[in-house]
Design a protein around this nucleic acid. Structure first.
Lengths: 150, 150
DNA sequence: AAAATATGAAGGTCAAAGAAAGTCAAAATG
DNA sequence: CATTTTGACTTTCTTTGACCTTCATATTTT
């Protein structure tokens, strides 16, 4: 008896394979209904199996006509991207984050303007919270941004 | 999975396109009738989709021969950016933030890639904190980023 | 004829109900 | 113990409807 989470994971990955643009839109309740599980189980699957560092971007909308969109970034083909994700980890300080962004520019993976955007986003001034949260949020933001440039 | 609001939004934008992108005049009740919805739904669409930060001005008149006029405006870029900064304020929700970023792309102040970077940075998933902090941090990040494109 | 009033035809507002997705922690499982 | 499952509760976005305001015009009053 394989875990339902695994089944849902596989199901979503199949959907992604079928869609050539590597993005798929689901209805949370519909999917939960289909698999006869709690709707929040879908969130659990997304949170544990479709994270940014695994190369997935999630975007969603509540309310009438709401949806969950799962986008696959092709991380497997980008050894460097995967390394970056690992390097960033769950927590990252400002210095290290800036160093990573500079390296991206050097490697010509981003433009000068994009560098400035990214630096602005992860700056201490932007993330104006207690220090323990700060580095965590910074890691999230940086990983999300890095995922979009590939 | 478009809900009626999205359909009405698209309809009005088509009207605008047909009219050389200048302005278009509608009758609220007529439109509501056409789409089989409550007249106030039209107001909802205008309020959420045709806001100033999206570059629209609404003007209307009640009474016999009343109308609603939707005007697409094009203001000076620097002026627009300054207005945006003010508009963002200290706290901003995800929807509004996304609307602003989309508008920046429309006005060609940012590229498609930059749009994606910015969206990633301000997404709820990046800013993974208690709700009251979230909108505050988002405002900071967005303002910092917008500042870089001046 | 001019002023006052009534009528009906617009559009405006706001709050409640509905429709999704999100969160969090307790319970279950392995 | 770590992972998974469940469900009660929350937040966000949309739809609906009852009631309000404004305006043009028709009608009545002076």
């Amino acid at each position: 008896m394989s875990r339902i989470s695994n089944i849902i994971e596989i199901f979503i990955k199949e959907l992604l394979d079928e869609s050539n643009n590597l993005a798929v839109e689901i209805q949370r309740n519909e999917l939960a209904d289909y698999f006869n599980c709690a709707p929040s189980q879908i969130n659990y699957v997304l949170m544990t199996r479709f994270t940014v560092d695994k190369g997935y971007l999630i975007e969603s909308r509540r309310g009438g006509g709401g949806y969950i969109k799962i986008v696959k970034v092709n991380i497997d083909k980008n050894q460097y991207l995967r390394m970056l994700m690992e390097d960033i980890g769950d927590v990252i300080g400002n210095m290290k984050a800036e160093a990573i962004i500079h390296r991206l520019l050097e490697k010509e993976l981003i433009s000068e303007r994009e560098k400035r955007l990214m630096l602005a986003a992860i700056s201490d001034r932007s993330i104006n919270t207690p220090i323990n949260l700060k580095d965590h949020i910074r890691a999230n933001i940086l990983k999300s941004m890095v995922a979009t440039i590939f």
